[in-house]
């Protein structure tokens, strides 16, 4: 079976700085990483391939440097990596990106499952999986984990605070994978060497996909407001047995006239 995994390259949210004076993100220190939920999607795809055979193809939309994220996907174990890169795609919003990805999936051919992370941790709308499914005309299961395959039926699990239940869907389908307890594998050092030295990342543009500018440029989302998060004070850590920690906490709170 052919599984396509859509990944996004983002700035590392843990390293991004906020410039309060300019009310903007300061990307200087932040590294570019694969969107963490997409790594869970990739891991799920690799496990399905290990159980049922087939091919895992990583897809991403972006400028040339995004091929770095795709190489990481190759290092993790993907068989092929395809970059959708075109000036026209630069300004596209989620609907445009979804359309491009859907077209690529069709272009690859014979894809029976598309996996992606439930949302991107940078812009985080979380609408891509649904839009993608809409474009493809396939069903979508969101917030899914532990996908399992039996014949052509895909079963995945969803949960809330209290319970966990399974959802079954016939292939082909789109699955938005959520974070799970078991972390995605580390790309083996051996594959890193291969992925960055020898492997090829295929690059397709809008012509290759048969996409016209009008199909991409229509904007369906609008950014209304940007709000800075509130400032946080540094805390302190208490240690010792629960009785001692409680005592020192009370002494601290009293000392600070909070109780």
């Amino acid at each position: 079976m052919r599984i396509a995994v859509c990944i996004k390259q983002i700035l590392d949210p843990r390293a991004v700085r906020l410039s309060r004076s300019r009310e903007a993100i300061d990307p200087r220190q932040a590294a570019r990483i694969v969107n963490p939920p997409d790594r869970y999607a990739l891991e799920a795809a690799l496990r399905l391939r290990e159980r049922h055979g087939g091919e895992v193809i990583a897809l991403s939309v972006g400028a040339r440097d995004v091929s770095d994220a795709l190489r990481e996907a190759l290092a993790m174990g993907a068989d092929r990596a395809i970059l959708l890169s075109d000036e026209m795609l630069a300004g596209a919003d989620a609907s445009g990106v979804a359309r491009a990805l859907a077209r690529a999936v069709e272009h690859i051919g014979d894809v029976s499952l598309v996996l992606t992370g439930e949302r991107a941790l940078d812009t985080g709308g979380g609408t891509l999986p649904a839009r993608l499914a809409q474009e493809l005309g396939w069903p979508v299961v969101t917030d899914a984990s532990e996908p399992q395959l039996e014949d052509s039926i895909l079963r995945a699990f969803q949960r809330d605070e209290k319970q966990r239940w399974s959802v079954s869907v016939a292939l082909p389908a789109v699955l938005a994978v959520t974070r799970q307890r078991e972390k995605p594998r580390y790309p083996p050092a051996l594959r890193i060497a291969w992925a960055y030295r020898e492997a090829e990342v295929e690059t397709w543009d809008c012509d290759d996909l048969g996409l016209s500018p009008e199909e991409i440029s229509a904007r369906h989302t609008e950014e209304r407001n940007l709000v800075m998060p509130p400032e946080r004070n540094l805390g302190f850590i208490l240690s010792g047995s629960p009785e001692e920690a409680a005592r020192s906490l009370v002494a601290e709170l009293r000392g600070k006239r909070l109780i």
Partner: peptide, 10 residues
């Protein structure tokens, strides 16, 4: 080289 950068990150 890029593979070393990626390796360090991992």
């Amino acid at each position: 080289p890029p593979e070393m950068v990626a390796f360090r990150r991992m």
